[in-house]
Structure formats: C-alpha cells, structure tokens
Amino acid sequence: MNPTLTALRAGWQRGLIELRQTFTNGQDIFGQLFWPVVMLVVLFFLRDSTVEGVSLGVGVLALPGALGMNLGITGIIGMSQLLSVEREDGTLLRAKAIPNGMLGYLVGKIVMVTGTLVAGVLILLVPGSFLLDGLTTDSPTTWLALLGVVVLGAMATLPAGAVIGSLITSPRSLGLIMLPIMGLVAISGVFYPIAAMAGWVQWLAQVFPIYWLGLGMRAALLPDSAVAVELGQSWRHWETVAVLGAWAVVGLVLAPIVLRRMARRESGSSVAARRDKAMQRVG
C-alpha cells in the first residue's frame, strides 16, 4: 500500500466528511444561506431597472458578478479562516503527528472549500435562474464555461487563502483581511460597472482575481449583447485565463513554502500559548 496514495484518499474522505458536517449543521447552513438569500432578494427587486445600452435588467446583470464575488471571498477567506482556526485549536498539530497527516489535511481542506464554492454557486444560481430572466442557463456551453470559471477561480484563490491563513497569527486578525477584500469588491465591478470608474481604480481592480471572476461569470451566463457594458466591449477570455492563471501559479508556488514553514513551527506549546492568549482577550 502506498502511503502517499493512502493519505490522498484519506484526505478526500476528510473533505467529504467535513462537507457533510457543514451541510447538516444548523449554524453552518445558516451561514451558507444568509448572504445568498439577501442577495437574491435585492436582485429580485432590481430586476426591472435597466442599464443604458443593454436590454437586460440590473438584477440579472449583477447576479454573475455576485457569483464571482462569492467565489473569490469563499476561496480566500474560507481557506484562510479554516487554516487559522484549525491552527489554533490543534487540528494542524494533530495532522502533523500523523504519518502524511499534513498532506491528508490539505487535500481535505481543498475538497471541503471547493465543495463549499460549488454549493455557493448553485445556491445563488439555481433560484436566480428561476427568479430572473435573461441568463443563458439553457445552453450546455454556459455550464461548461461556468465549470471552467469555478475551477480556475478555486485554483487562483485557495492557495492565496492558504498563504494568508498561514501568515496571520490568529483567527481574530481576519478582520484585517476582510476590510481590503471588501474594498476590492467595491471597485471590481460587481454591483457597479467598472467602466464607470476612474482609470487607476480600473487598473487596480484588474490586478486582483475578484474582477476577473465576475467577468468570467458574466461571460458564461449572460447573452452576448451584455458585453456592451464591459471594458473594451469584450469578454476578454484570454486575459481572464491569464490573470487567474498567474494567481494560481504564484499561489501554488508560494503556498507549499509558507505552509511548510508554518507547520514546522507548530508544537504543543505554541498551540497552548495561542490558546492562553485567546482566553486573555476573551476574559
């Protein structure tokens, strides 16, 4: 029996078990559903207002952007949050004490967060396609393109999330990460067309994955006529693949280095020290 293969299989099993735990637990289900439901309600009320030059409602135009945003946030925040919480509670150290446990642990996290990403897309997209008119969900190429964006999005955001999760010292520092990401969402053309923003803001937004995830989602889900509101009136497929691909490559190179460094420093006393610190802050 090959130990690495065994660990990969165990990791896959871990991911599935944790997904099941997430979706059979009231608190977690609420967390998964709250924002999508709020967003759907907002988009539903915006369905009849229109944007100049396009025949589609604002609701349907904004839905793919919201999907891309969810994808980016779940990938980065979800991953970094899990890592920092599980570093503090000793899960990571436990993995370290087991042969090939770290490999199994990481595979488990990737399966788990990717599963959450897919669920997040479906939770918003399936009811959205009934409530809003104009999505091209009846075409098979739409689903193919959607799959492509999800896969590329996961590859671009999960390693980045893992790096952030390894670098921050406690789950309570996550707020510091949330803030810039929210700022990024605001300038990434999710709710407001990026073409209407100042030039330097557009440039800044296009460095990060959230804009491209939104664009990719719009390219997949909207009819071609909607391209009129995009920069350069183009879906820019190649640029999307290039930027998200670059994030994936950099992330996949950096993440193992940072993760290894973080794992090496884990010991019982470091877990205990962090717990004591956490208790002090609470008490």
Binding site: M1, P3, T6, A7, R9, A10, Q13, R14, I17, E18, Q21, N25, E86, D89, G90, T91, L93, R94, A97, I98, P99, N100, G101, G104, G268, V271, A272, R275
Partner: peptide
C-alpha cells in the same frame, strides 16, 4: 499533547477510523 480542542464536529468512532487510515 496537553491541550486538544480540535475536530469538535467529528464523531468519536468516525474520527478514529479516519485518522487510523493513515497508518495502514
């Protein structure tokens, strides 16, 4: 180790079965 608080959502037997697999 001294303090574990991990795997709170896992079930006892399920966790032992999972972690055991790595040793096979």
């Amino acid at each position: 180790l001294q303090s574990w608080r991990d795997h709170g959502k896992w079930r006892v037997r399920e966790l032992l079965d999972h972690l055991g697999r790595f040793y096979a």
